[in-house]
């Protein structure tokens, strides 16, 4: 069953006809070609597919594309502005917050919301905020470091 949807992704509006069962993550990756959002599991655990919808992060594997009708979605591709990396992206780079890079988009998206809500988190609060994102490479150490560095950078900018 095809359903028409209209939404804004990274500032661009899209009108599409999607199968009702199409998951948002499949819509982003397959229909819009935004493959920066990854699929790491099928049980809503890993967080590789985290994007922001109307400001709040969500796991785009746990949302039908039709549920995003009318929404404003931001993916990893939409974070950098005018060729400048987002401070969280920059901090991941500076602090070796990634290795294979597969969880990275979800991690970065989660941390952007975390810092919006709490601009000066403790390491413990960062760790708690990453509950929904799994990284198999970094042991989280440098991800936490990157999040704290990004917070610092955003506060002092």
């Amino acid at each position: 069953m095809k359903v028409p949807i209209k939404l804004t992704v990274n500032g661009r509006s899209h009108e599409s006809e999607v199968e009702a069962r199409t998951l948002l993550v499949h819509y982003l990756r397959d229909d819009l070609g935004l493959t920066g959002t990854k699929i790491g599991c099928d049980t809503s655990q890993c967080g590789a597919c985290v994007v922001r919808m109307n400001g709040a992060t969500l796991k785009s594997c746990t949302c039908l594309a039709v549920q995003a009708d009318g929404a404003e979605v931001t993916t990893i591709e939409g974070l950098a502005q005018d060729g400048n990396l987002h401070p969280v992206q920059e901090a991941f780079w500076d602090n070796h917050g990634l290795q294979c890079g597969y969880c990275t988009a979800g991690m970065i998206m989660t941390i952007t919301e975390l810092l919006d809500r709490n601009p000066n988190p403790s390491a413990e609060e960062v760790r708690a905020g990453l509950e929904g994102n799994i990284c198999r490479c970094t042991g989280y150490h440098n991800i936490v470091k990157a999040a704290l560095a990004a917070a610092e950078a955003i506060r002092s900018s």
């Binding site: 919301e113 975390l114 905020g129 509950e131 929904g132």
Partner: peptide, 9 residues
């Protein structure tokens, strides 16, 4: 409850 994304949705 759950994680940030669960709580958001």
């Amino acid at each position: 409850i759950g994680d940030t994304q669960v709580r958001n949705r």
